[in-house]
Structure formats: structure tokens, C-alpha cells
Computed example of a mutant assay.
Amino acid sequence: MGDDSAVVEEGARKSGVLWLTLDRPRLAWHVWHDGAIYLVAGGGEQELPGLDALDRVRVTLRSKDNGARLVEFDAAVSRVDQAAEPGAVAALAKERLNAADSEHLTERWARDSLVVRLDPLP
């Protein structure tokens, strides 16, 4: 990704939302953790239809300040083994606002949701 990698990291750290190009552009909340973007889909969380079947997705980050498009890039999509990556799951749980079951959130995700890692591609 060259010079864009710093822009991607800064944009993903500063804004808690991004756009994924799926059946249509879909807004999703996420966290930046360990050099990648993590998000939760399904199971009562955000609906991101078709993401689980993709090996790459187009991501758009917008400026938190003015909403202008900051950067667009392709990212490799991989399913996260939630037990093997507790740090990523904890980072997501910390940023999940207004969850009705916050004390059992990670258990629900393990049972009902898909946690995804998006690695920006060069």
C-alpha cells in the first residue's frame, strides 16, 4: 500500500466506522488492532451480508472531522478464531457501545456472530 498504509492506520484509529462495498455500501463499526481492522457481524450485531463468503472487500474510510473520503483500499477478509485472538475480541468489546448484554457480549459473539479481520492489501 505504500504511503497509504499510514493514512489507513490513522483513519481507522480515529474513526470507529467505515464503509464496506458488499451488496451495496454498508456502514460498519470496527476497531484497529494489531495492524488490522476487526469487526463483528451477525448474531444481533451489524448485518454485513455476504462478507463471510468474500476473500477480499473494498473499504472506504472517511474523515472523522468532515466526513470526506480519506482513503479507499482492498482488504483481505479472514474469519477470526475468537478463542485464539482474545486481544482483538477484547478490543472490539471495549468499543461496542450500548450493548444490552455487555457482561455476556463476548460469549454471545462466540456463539452467534462472526468476528472478521480485514488486512489492507498493497
Rank of each mutant, 00 (worst) to 15 (best):
M1R: 13
D3W: 06
D4C: 08
D4E: 11
S5P: 05
A6D: 15
V7T: 13
V8S: 07
E10V: 03
E10G: 06
E10I: 01
E10R: 15
A12S: 08
G16I: 03
G16L: 07
G16F: 10
G16Y: 11
V17Y: 14
V17I: 05
V17W: 13
L18T: 03
L18K: 07
W19M: 02
W19N: 05
L20N: 07
L20I: 04
T21R: 15
L22D: 12
L22F: 14
D23G: 04
D23L: 01
D23N: 01
R24I: 02
P25W: 07
P25Y: 05
A28D: 09
A28K: 10
A28M: 13
W29Q: 07
W29A: 11
H30Q: 10
V31P: 15
W32P: 06
W32Q: 05
D34V: 08
G35N: 02
G35C: 03
A36I: 09
Y38S: 02
L39P: 11
V40T: 11
G43E: 12
G44K: 11
G44Y: 13
E45P: 01
Q46C: 00
Q46P: 12
E47I: 04
E47P: 12
P49K: 02
L51R: 03
D52L: 01
L54W: 13
L54Y: 15
R56K: 04
R56V: 00
V57L: 02
V59P: 15
V59N: 11
T60P: 14
T60H: 15
R62S: 08
R62P: 14
S63G: 07
S63K: 04
D65M: 02
G67E: 06
G67S: 10
G67C: 10
A68N: 12
R69M: 12
R69S: 12
L70V: 03
L70N: 11
V71W: 11
E72I: 05
F73A: 00
D74V: 09
A75H: 14
A76L: 00
S78V: 05
V80R: 12
D81I: 04
D81P: 07
D81K: 03
A83K: 00
A83T: 00
E85H: 11
G87N: 07
A88C: 03
V89C: 11
V89F: 12
A90C: 07
A91I: 01
A91E: 13
A93C: 07
K94S: 06
K94Y: 11
E95W: 02
R96P: 05
L97G: 07
N98Q: 08
A100C: 02
A100H: 12
D101A: 02
D101T: 08
E103W: 14
E103I: 00
H104C: 01
H104Q: 08
H104G: 10
L105A: 10
L105G: 09
E107F: 05
R108E: 01
W109G: 05
W109K: 01
A110P: 12
A110N: 03
D112W: 14
D112S: 04
S113C: 00
V115D: 11
V115G: 13
R117A: 09
L118W: 13
L118I: 02
D119M: 06
